[in-house]
């Protein structure tokens, strides 16, 4: 099975309420809250595209966009 590759974290800052659920349960510790208490992907290289943040987000504010690329 081809390893999933991240293209980007698409974060809707207007919808994010900064609850921190995605930050806490991210297995790669990719996400953090910024000074505005909105989520940002600070270590996107560590993302394994498990999409748990996307599925757990109560505000539907995160989307993991995968790189469909050449594989």
């Amino acid at each position: 099975m081809a390893k999933k590759k991240l293209k980007e974290h698409r974060i809707n800052r207007d919808w994010c309420k900064g609850c921190g659920i995605c930050v806490k349960f991210c297995p790669g510790k990719v996400l953090e809250l910024d000074a505005m208490e909105k989520v940002v992907a600070v270590r996107p290289k560590d993302c394994i595209c498990c999409k748990l943040c996307e599925l757990r987000c109560p505000d539907l504010a995160i989307e993991i966009v995968e790189d469909e690329g050449d594989e």
Binding site: K17, G20, C57, L60
Partner: peptide, 23 residues
């Protein structure tokens, strides 16, 4: 499947109801 014009929704930060909607 969403009515995006009503977002962000009225639930509190961290409310599980948003996760129910999501799933």
């Amino acid at each position: 499947y969403l009515r995006e014009r009503f977002f962000p929704h009225m639930w509190c930060p961290g409310c599980g109801h948003g996760t129910v909607l999501n799933t």
